[in-house]
Design a protein around this nucleic acid. Sequence first.
DNA 1: CTCCCTCGAGTTCT
DNA 2: CTCGAGGGAG
Length: 806
Amino acid sequence: MSQDPHQRALYLRELLTRYGHEYYALDAPTVPDAEYDRLFRELQALETAHPALRTADSPTRRVGAAPLPEFSQVTHEVPMLSLGNAFSDMQATGFAERHAELIQFDERIRRELGQATVHYATEPKFDGLAISLIYQDGVLTQAATRGDGVAGENVTENIRTIRSIPLRLNSATPPALLEVRGEVVMLKQDFERLNAEQTARGDKTFANPRNAAAGSLRQLDSRITASRRLSFFAYAIARVSGAVWPETHDGEMNWLAALGFPVVEAALRPVVEGAAGLAAYYEGVMQGRPSLPFEIDGVVYKVNRREEQETLGFVSRAPRWAIAHKFPAEEALTQVEAIEEQVGRTGAITPVARLKPVFVGGVTVTNATLHNEDEVRRKDVRVGDTVIVRRAGDVIPEVVSVVLAQRPMRPAAGGDLFSAGDKPQYPPYRLPTHCPVCGSHVVREEGEAVARCSGGLSCKAQRSQAIQHFAGRRMMDIDGLGERYIDKLVEYEYVRGVADLYRLSVDDLLEMKRRADEDEGATPETVKAGKIASKWADNLIEAIAASRTPPLPRLLFALGIRHVGESTAKTLADWLGSVALIRQCPAPLFAALPDIGGVVAQSLADFFSESHNADALDQLLRYVQPQGEHAPSPRLAERLDTAALLARLNIPRLTEVRSQQLAGQIRSLAALADFSRQQTLLLDLPAEVINALADWLDAPANKDALRALETLRQHILAALPQDAGSAHPLFEGKTFVLTGTLPTLSRDQAKDRIEAAGGKVSGSVSKKTHFVVAGSEAGSKLAKAQELGVAVIDEAALLAMLDQSA
DNA sequence: CTCCCTCGAGTTCT
DNA sequence: CTCGAGGGAG
């Protein structure tokens, strides 16, 4: 034992790594646990005595590290996509329907590939958390959660504590870089044990293994993660360099297993042929589901050959070569205790079924949305009914159908108490004609599914929700201002509009809280509670103050204008640049912007012309200063030409082409407003078009609109930066398509820079595409470009073009 | 006019 | 997550 500590540590690490792999990944231990523990403690002692001996791949790193203040964000080099689910989710789906859908799926793939048969790799769809693992020169260096697919959280310390995940790859010549994707799950038996322990300790239990796994992994203190038994299964390779990437998915899995990753046993991931093979696999897994050691919510089919995967490529955010086939959602029976209505931010009245609590799909469900009146009628849900409930997409509870045989009936007239009559006890559901909160009329627009409260912001429900929206994370991001307090602030009228938030004092908040507590059965105030409350109020006031300088797009989104979400708000900010300009734009001007059509444009114009909105905005701007305001985009000029605006004015019979012709014959929109009926006859247009135009011009409001539009147009053009129109000819009017992963630029960065230079970025390749910018792992879009003879450039070439244009 | 895709809005529970 | 509506391309 008088060995060199360095040698000894090396030896112990290797031995422990091997034993660990045998135990956790292969489930075939070769030494007793006690022996493992003894060696483990020896290595720990050695490393404590000689800190220089600690390495990233040491098994001792599996016990967890001191808590982090928060998880850092990690951007995924290769986005973590979600899988499409092309199969219907109806409860009635039986073997025959499923088989038919599989045949369709297989046919589509064969058609696109132009092949007679296709082989599919299969696997169970784990119900856990998707994780990405990065190994550099064979050592685990980073682990991240999926997050939104583009960026996730850095959970490296927590992942290290999962015994079955190799800290070092089992290879003498590991790849320089390997990124592996897989799922962290909690085995059913470990879940049972954890919950038993939680109960014994008086801690709260987890509703299902998935929640337990998520809760355990997302601990800032990785020592807690280490105390929970989590498992991992690898299912894909995202990146490799310095090694040969296997040609099939099956080959990838075998390689991963050889490198030391736990993968699902081979019998559970056969490579099958055609629809019949898929169907047999699906039925087989569904049968075996209860006896699997982990929870699954379906199966996954992947086209086996990577070459074929690349041909199929991607649609928006999902690969077309891989697809999830979920098992039918678990269903349960319960009773409808009441049907109540909720009022949304836009006034939408939504009927909600209050249910007798029932455990389904891993959680207890007490509410289920009934969406709208038509939906309730179609399902004919009534109070007292027994209904089948499931969690749609395994998340949102849904009433599937009513068990009519169990509908409570009124006793038959004249009959005895026990003989039910033929009349249901409750009538069919009717949406109320007046808002349950404010009593305003409920109106349902022609052709729309939703009914709305007409009260607008005079309705307390809408006001409260408008403020909730305003304070939301993606809007003004006021931390700590939640639903409960907003409702109270609105109810007691401390706050009537969003600007009032900025006038609140600590005392106002404390007073509000006292009243709220009183209303909810007061707890006598203690000195300690008082201190906590005043700290809470201080923090909230601070959070509100911190929201006074929002980026412009967020402020616009926060206003809660109908049809204006995150994306439209950004468009408005990018193109028009300032609240001052945006608030005075007429509808046709909004409609000149990309992705804004008639409905959205009108909604915007209506919002700003409504006087109480204008007042509220004025008030708000006394406290809030949007950041990043700028002059209108130089690219705006080309969108404001007379013809384009004429086409957006909805003048009867004035088509795109006719607008062009008309624009060529008049000096300006204002000049057109001055045309007399006589003068219109001189225009070189078909008589019917002239007639319609003359009629339209008869309305003074239309003439005013034309003049106002022209004035504003001039105003905007004057405000454009002087180097307007400087878009470089290299980019001017050119359409780019990005595909694959670029070496240095993210997709968004590339898009921003191309657009800033005056180019356009589109999602799919067509004849009208000028350049395809291809990175690594480029798929079908590259193939399409080659097929159509579109120029393909790499990132370096794009950067060179951008340099030239700057 | 008809797809196809993206965006907005509503929703549940922990 | 899902639905429906809006926008744009073919």
